[in-house]
Nucleic acid binder design. Sequence first.
DNA 1: ACGCCCATGTAAGCGGTTACATGATTGT
DNA 2: ACAATCATGTAACCGCTTACATGGGCGT
Lengths: 202, 202
Amino acid sequence: MSLRYALMALLRVGPLSGYDLQKQFQVSVGHLWHAPDSQIYPELRKMESEGLVVGEDQPRGERGTRRVYHLTDEGDQAYAAWMEGPLSYARAREPANLKAAYLESASPEAARAFLADHIRHWRGELEQWEAELERIDARANPMLQRRLAATHPRDHDRTVAFKRFGYEGLVDRARAEIAWAERGLALVDDLYGPEDTVAGHA
Amino acid sequence: MSLRYALMALLRVGPLSGYDLQKQFQVSVGHLWHAPDSQIYPELRKMESEGLVVGEDQPRGERGTRRVYHLTDEGDQAYAAWMEGPLSYARAREPANLKAAYLESASPEAARAFLADHIRHWRGELEQWEAELERIDARANPMLQRRLAATHPRDHDRTVAFKRFGYEGLVDRARAEIAWAERGLALVDDLYGPEDTVAGHA
DNA sequence: ACGCCCATGTAAGCGGTTACATGATTGT
DNA sequence: ACAATCATGTAACCGCTTACATGGGCGT
């Protein structure tokens, strides 16, 4: 239910073609709310049918066209309503914690592999988000630049500060997941004895 | 895709009727993986059709029946395969962080309300999970008691330790969310000036 | 007799995933 | 000429949500 608001957040700074929107999405708001292009195109059509955006077919070369989407007043109001209203929270559904709670039924090797993989996954996410934080601080993200160019300089610090704040939450999350899984590895050592090192084959 | 493994984790300690399973689910593994009863009954039927469980209709009173589910060998193996294999991770899709990153387009009041609500939500979750941690430490959860009764005393510490570990991750998460949102409230004060207190109407 | 709990679902719809499908344009 | 990338989708399926639906059993 949040995809459309993520899309509108981008369209609010100016019209974009479906393709450009999708590309910008992947390197900006897509870090916060993932969506593949195969979901974005249909969602735009659906939003158009609901009057939130209008699509304008523009010629491209001889035969090609590209569809440029503009946010409508109605879309702007829907976005504002989402921003002003409460968020609904989904109940917990955490596969990693679920599995962790029953690790006594896994082999020690599988338990270690699971935890190592958890660390690997969240380290990867952490890198992405930290890199994005740096781009935000440097005001280097193209979408952010467009956004700042479209707003009064007086509001720039606010815009940057909130963007930073949103990503900081993800960074905190990733760090917490990594720390948790590291404690898990120590716990496995405690319960089963330290791992035979890979080098210990001889 | 994890629901069936959550159900099998319970059925592994012994057969349960759909109803009992659903009830036990809500007060144990349901904290880690939420599912309403309207999802559990059909999932059990589906698992039966795949041979993971068998359902046995037992008479109840004169006309009533209850369907008692047993884990099959095939189900046990599927559970083991899940435990031994890797978990697949979903890409980030965090409505709260998404909204946070665009809070400059909300009124200060809405921003504060959002953050306060975030804190309220996660405090509620935190309470649940901390209460569950206490029940784990006291070995007071009925499902945990059944589980321990069905396993060798030598393995009890492990079982309890991993269950604790799983919930600790959720507790960490909740604390991180609360700390983040509190920083957010401070940030809003910084950016817009401190809130007029409710008492400040005079 | 009544109400609460036991007991088990169905149906419609939504958001998302995965895989597939097609063709035009631009730069080398 | 060819490749990369621009550009836009469709179709099938899956897990989950929400609301609705029904009836028996048991304790007071």
